[in-house]
Write a protein that binds this DNA or RNA. Structure first.
Lengths: 211, 211
DNA sequence: TTTCATTATTTTGTATACATTTTTGTTTAT
DNA sequence: ATAAACAAAAATGTATACAAAATAATGAAA
């Protein structure tokens, strides 16, 4: 199952993955200065592929001004604003188009969400949204959301780690709406769901700020 | 007024601009194969900055698989779908927040749209949408739309060049709604406006296909 | 002719070198 | 002590070289 990504033979891709992971799990916390030569030495590549990987990370918003991003509250709000528009639309589309197979996959994500380990829950959560996004059938929209994926991950960790209440219940409600082919409701529930995520993140953010 | 962009001293930025312009005005039509060394020789730079510029063009969707993009009808629909969501939202936000100064700028775009030369109309058209997008106050949203800018330009040319009827009238209606602080209406009119643009583009596209 | 295999050729990915630019650190004058 | 000016160091942008990979061209077998 561990599919070999043929891109991994590229130094630039490997560097991208290592650096991204370091940022995502806190090894390179927000504000860390990025210096090409230092990373090149650390990862054992030359500067050329490192530079390429850094451009990708810039593009995804993980690096800003040669520093690891430190998303502000405003950034968080902006992100959920855009997601709400795109994923709300996708949820509606899903209610119209989603095939049986994907419905089952959604259902499975909910089950894992209730019974799985922390890591399994993270994955299931991501997969749930991914299936719906794909249902938009709009490659540009999918791409746009994927671009935000890393930053979303940064926050999804918060939501799952701090065990947000009703998270999976909301997924289930969305799922039910899609299954019932009620597009407008699916859209509304998705928007509400993201609003709850946002509020939860903001709460965590602010309470840890005053700690 | 011709402000010197200090980025222009970078070979990579210059290369980006030259190649982008070549694509946008048809010097490098859709399907043209991109070879780094060839471009490097032509533009008088080494491959390094050329590669960097190509990444950016990839990112903006002007280059796909080492070829100049040839947007399909599906691409066109996808683009307008995403724009409709983001610019619809922005129009609503504009109705709430837009300061007097920007209202006047919008009004000016309409005037130029009625009286200007082809090129002035193109600019005014772009500026009209840009002002509204900025009103979203959401940097991520603005960035996302900017990313689509080049492809939008490709189609805007069609709309203006073939002199789409009611184009400026629709702008004016949107402007009036924003001025009247009617957010819902502004949003709806923007969505309708983009739908008209899309249909017009599709029409041109299809009639030229059967020529 | 068509198909496959094998060479050439082109093109790409990466490493390295070097010249500017940017940043840091130090000294001097106020 | 603070600010300005300068020197030293570090970091970046670009050019070039080379090996690996992808593509095109050639020829042999069906």
């Amino acid at each position: 199952m561990t599919q070999y990504d043929k891109n991994s033979r590229f130094a630039s891709k490997q560097a991208y993955e290592v650096i991204r992971d370091r940022i995502l799990n806190g090894d390179m916390p927000g504000g860390t200065k990025i210096v090409e030569e230092k990373l090149a030495a650390e990862l054992g590549f030359s500067r050329t592929p490192i530079r390429e990987s850094l451009r990708q990370l810039n593009y995804e918003g993980l690096i800003v001004n040669k520093k690891v991003v430190q998303p502000t509250e405003k950034d968080l709000r902006n992100l959920f604003q855009v997601r709400s528009l795109l994923e709300g639309f996708s949820a509606k589309a899903a209610a119209t188009y989603l095939p049986e197979e994907d419905l089952n996959a959604l259902s499975n994500c909910i089950k894992v969400g209730r019974e799985g380990t922390m890591e399994e829950i993270m994955d299931a959560n991501e997969r749930f949204h991914e299936i719906i996004v794909q249902a938009s059938g709009n490659a540009l929209m999918i791409d746009t959301i994927h671009r935000m994926k890393s930053i979303i991950y940064l926050f999804r960790k918060t939501v799952v780690l701090y065990n947000r209440p009703r998270l999976i219940d909301e997924h289930e409600e969305i799922y039910e709406s899609i299954k019932a082919r009620d597009g407008e409701n699916a859209k509304k529930l998705m928007e509400d769901h993201l609003k709850e995520d946002l509020d939860f993140c903001l709460h965590i953010l602010n309470s840890s700020k005053n700690a």
